[in-house]
């Protein structure tokens, strides 16, 4: 008798476990909190302050999604992930969304069964060295010791780049950006390589940023973007269009300052559809009319405002918009129409 009860429980547990991939939107709503995977600490992109409040460029995506779905940008549980643990965390359902400087590649999209919902930063891999090393080009790094985060695309690019240029190097495997920073500063490696944005962010945290240079070579394409699990298209749509809403808002001139004004209705039907004063686009993705408005306010403004506040030229990280300008400004940012 007891055995059959036990077996029954087992069966029920198995049935429950089997339905892990149920609608993520419902799960997040029921939980009242978005589990968002972020970097363990990369100033400007995702880093906690002294009070444990996370902020940064990637964190803004988490906030925007939480605001759109739950109506409150603070209802996010930030899960710090390393280059090694991030995919397991997403695949296992520990996090609903991964916004952690993750490069969109063919195999990650298809073989690892993830859906990249867009690109929030067009990046490329670069090298940082000490100024007194006297190196001005990555081609002069023959025989150098290079610190590299394991489990990343940069690891593979590095091997390819040195091979194609017929150079040799010694890799030093590190786990997190903090560890890489420490090893590099201790002189355990001549060069530190990761995405150029990451290098700028890391350098900004140094005591003597002026003594380190980022070499001019960008050796790869690193389109960084948020990603979700395969198989839940509704959730993928929500995150994709939240990102698009932030980009579109900048294009249409919707800012955190004028959004309340514009939400009352404008002459521009595109803005009206975006902010929900015309039509009901939110219903198509299982949300209400004001989702995009909440997302923009929750994230702290449109894409341009977020960029300027977290990693832009006025911040210590000092990244120029470059490729990440709107398509109208010669950049690559191009949000599909809200229609």
């Amino acid at each position: 008798m007891k055995t059959s009860v036990f077996l029954g429980t087992l069966t029920a547990a198995a049935a429950l476990a089997g339905s892990v991939s149920a609608a993520t939107l419902d799960e997040v709503k029921a939980r009242g909190e978005l589990n968002c995977g972020v970097n363990t600490g990369l100033v400007g992109f995702a880093a906690p302050d002294a009070n444990g409040n996370w902020s940064g460029f990637d964190v803004a995506i988490c906030k925007a999604v939480a605001a759109a779905v739950l109506g409150d940008p603070s209802k996010v549980k930030y899960v710090p992930t390393t280059g090694q643990t991030r995919f397991t965390a997403l695949a296992s359902g520990e996090i609903d969304l991964l916004a952690r400087n993750t490069t969109w590649t063919f195999s990650r999209d298809t073989d690892l069964k993830f859906t990249f919902v867009g690109v929030n930063y067009y990046d490329g891999q670069g090298f940082m060295v000490r100024k007194d090393l006297g190196v001005s080009s990555a081609k002069e790094l023959d025989g150098a010791t290079v610190c590299i985060q394991t489990g990343t695309t940069t690891e593979l690019n590095l091997a390819d780049y040195f091979k194609s240029n017929n150079l040799s190097y010694t890799p030093v495997a590190i786990e997190t950006n903090a560890e890489g920073e420490q090893q590099y500063l201790a002189g355990a490696c001549d060069a530190y390589t990761t995405d150029a944005s990451g290098l700028a962010a890391t350098r900004a945290a140094f005591a003597d940023p002026e003594n380190h240079i980022i070499l001019p070579e960008i050796i790869s394409k690193e389109p960084l973007g948020p990603l979700v699990r395969h198989g839940d298209d509704q959730w993928a749509d929500i995150t994709r269009w939240v990102l698009n809403a932030l980009v579109a808002a900048e294009e249409y001139g919707v800012t955190s300052a004028n959004i309340e004004e514009l939400a009352k209705g404008t002459q521009n039907p595109e803005i009206n559809r975006l902010l929900g004063t015309e039509g009901d686009l939110g219903a198509f993705i299982g949300l209400d009319k004001d989702w995009a408005k909440r997302a923009i306010i929750g994230a702290g403004g449109n894409y341009g405002e977020i960029f300027a506040a977290t990693i832009g030229e006025s911040t210590p990280i000092g990244l120029a918009r470059g490729l990440n300008a709107q398509w109208t400004q010669g950049g690559l940012l191009y949000a599909p129409p809200f229609r």
Partner: peptide, 29 residues
């Protein structure tokens, strides 16, 4: 085993060791 098989199926993943014969692409010091 059943739970693993179901979850792999739900994720659309299979179970094979073919990756061992693919190019590694990274260096070991």
């Amino acid at each position: 085993i059943d739970n693993t098989a179901r979850n792999l199926q739900a994720l659309g993943k299979d179970f094979n060791f073919g990756f061992l014969w693919n190019r590694a692409g990274y260096d070991i010091s």
